[in-house]
Structures are given as structure tokens and as C-alpha cells.
Simulated assay, not measured.
Amino acid sequence: MVHIGDLPEDLLLHLLSLVPGRDLIRNCRLVCSQWRDLVDVPTVWRRKCQWEGFLPRGQDRSVPNWKMFYFLCLKKRNLIKNPAAEAGLKHWVTIVHKDDEWNIKDLPGVDGREFPLPHVQKCFVTPLYWRSTKEQYIDLRKEGYWAELMDETKPDIVVKDWYIARYASGCRYTLTVQLLAENSMILETFEVPKEVIRQWNDAEWHEITHTFHNYPSGVRYIHFKHGSRGAKFRLNRYGVCVTNSGVTIGPEMAPRVGKETAPLTSSVLFGALGSNLEALTGRSAGFIPDNA
């Protein structure tokens, strides 16, 4: 029977690159000093990114830390819950005046304008006359972004939002995004300049996007708030419509073109080599938090 120690290092390096990243850190890295050193080699993580289609986008494709790049790509997703009104107003806290309320409309529903992305089927509609907003607070630790990751790596935080106004209705679109510390102190803010939409406007969808780069250490929460304030009174809900909001954390990636391969878990790897995972590791690593 082949023993792990008999494998050529190049072959072992290749096998380790096929193991899921969490298994590499929590199990494989604890086997012995040789495996620890191999798991820490950038080649393993670069190969994992290539196999799984995680590649940097743009002309500058240099990656200073392939392991961190891999985990950030693996985690990357929209942190805004219910961004396109598919679940009504669930997950959103709304602030309105008196009996006003946000509404949900099917698309196309604003002067018949199609949304640029076909998978988006609904939008939120604000009351027109008074200032109306809705907001979400994102707890980064609950989403798997632990303190050391945010403070040492400071991955880009990308904010996106889409809005449109009725052709015959003037109003104002607002968006404010704040990076907050543990004590809710504001560390950095992005705010859309006063965006007044004139009556008889183009009634086209507009995208707002902003990237937080090299922000201060200590970011633990993200506060996302958007809405509108009407410029003219109407009895119907003719304020700004918003949808497809987004907050993502991590590097900009090229379109995924990774190979389709079955994952090689650490248990399968050890089993194939006639070894016992628990006997080799003796414990599970705490390098990556359980919710990561």
C-alpha cells in the first residue's frame, strides 16, 4: 500500500490543490510539517483558482496573495438580502411619512421600460410626496468576513444600485452607504450627490456604482440606505423605482471558465492513501472561523 510519505512532492502538491480550501486549512495543514509547508505554498492556491475559475480581471493580473484571493472569490456574493423585491419588503427597514408606504411593481412597469438584466422581474416603488427610504445593516462577521480578514486584506467593497423615475414625475433619488466600526462609528461614507430628476425626464434605468478602496481598519458593518423625495404631489405612487441593489466584497474576477471537476475532499484523499484523517490530524484547525 502506498504511504503518503512515499508520494513525490509534485504529485502531492497536485492532489492537495484539488481538495476544497476549507479542508486544506482545517485538516490537511495539520497532518505534518511537510503538508503544512505545501498547503502554504502559493502554487497550491493558484492552481485551485485556475481549476475553479477564479481569475483576476483586467490587464494587471498580479495577485499578491493567492490563498486570500481564493477565499475572497469563494465567498463573493451579494450581501443585500432581497435586492429585487422578489420577497416583497422582507429584510428591509422602511422609513415613510404617515400613511405612505413602499410598493412592489412587476417589470416592465415604469412607462414600459425594460430592465437591462432579464432575471430582474420586480422593483420597489417609493411614495412620491414625502421623503421615503429603506435600509439594511450588514453584519460582516455573520456573513463570514472575520476581523483579521477585513483589517489586514481590506478587500474592495463594491456598491451598486439601479433607479428610474416616471416620465411625467419629477423627484429626487438618494443613496447613502456607510462603513461602520464595532461601536457604530462611521469610518467612511459614499453618498450620491443631489440627484434631481426633472419632470418629463428620459425615464431610463440608471446604474449607480461605487468601490470602497483602502478604507480604515475596523469595518464591521455596512449600512445601505436609498430612496427618494418627490418634487410634485401625486395621488399614486410615482416616486423613484429602485431594484437590483448590491453590496459585494472581494476582487474583481474574470468570467468563470474553470474546469468541471468533482471535488476531492480530504477524507477521500486520506482514504485513497490508506490513512486515517482523525489519527493524522487529531483535531480540527481554527484558522478559518466556522461561519467562513
Rank of each mutant, 00 (worst) to 15 (best):
G218S: 01
R46L: 07
N82R: 08
R237E: 06
P64L: 02
L264G: 13
S228W: 02
G246M: 10
R113N: 12
R57W: 14
Y163P: 14
V96P: 15
E252F: 09
Y163Q: 09
K142V: 03
S228Q: 05
M185E: 08
H119D: 15
E195I: 00
T265K: 09
Q50W: 07
I104Y: 01
A285L: 13
V257C: 11
F224M: 05
A231G: 15
Y137P: 00
P83H: 01
V192L: 15
P289N: 06
L277K: 10
E86D: 11
A203G: 07
R22M: 06
G282A: 04
E207T: 10
L24Q: 15
S169V: 09
E9M: 09
E207H: 14
G112L: 10
H223E: 00
L24V: 15
P118V: 02
T265L: 05
L18R: 08
R220P: 01
S228P: 10
A262S: 10
I138L: 02
T176N: 12
W92N: 05
R47T: 14
G286E: 13
N236R: 14
P8D: 07
T281I: 03
E204S: 10
L11Q: 11
V257I: 13
R234H: 12
Q59R: 14
S245W: 00
N201H: 08
G53D: 06
P116W: 02
I249E: 04
P42W: 04
V41T: 07
I157K: 04
F124K: 00
P42F: 02
G58C: 12
F124M: 02
V257E: 10
R46V: 04
C73A: 12
L187G: 01
I80R: 02
F212C: 00
R46K: 09
M150C: 08
K142G: 13
N244S: 08
G144M: 04
V19D: 13
S267Y: 06
R22E: 09
E188H: 01
